[in-house]
Amino acid sequence: MTAFVEFNGRTYDTDEEGYLANLSDWSPEIADYMAKLDDCDLGDAHWEVINFLRAYYQKYQIAPAVRVLTKAIGKKLGKDKGNSKYLYQLFPYGPAKQACKYAGLPKPTGCV
């Protein structure tokens, strides 16, 4: 089954959980829009995680599982950000799952 998201007069294919089917369809604007659909306003702290995920994907071609993301964020941005409490505050639906969606990545590898 295919699903899609409508944005700015265009439709973008997604999987059944709303993850963009094509990486190249992503833009900061569509990220903001997808977040709004979830009643989430993206601030600088969210963007820090989203940008981190996009860079991680660029480097490794995978969307990291939450445990891996937390550890990697801690290493890059410090322990005060590399912990579940901080990340769940930003992304209550699950930091890896939700942030990957806004980052235009597939659902994380290792999230069951």
Binding site: Q61, P64, V68
Partner: peptide, 14 residues
């Protein structure tokens, strides 16, 4: 094709 060889570098993180 997708160059998934890059993902082997993430095995340590996992």
């Amino acid at each position: 094709m997708k160059n998934f060889s890059l993902a082997y570098s993430a095995l340590g993180d996992y």
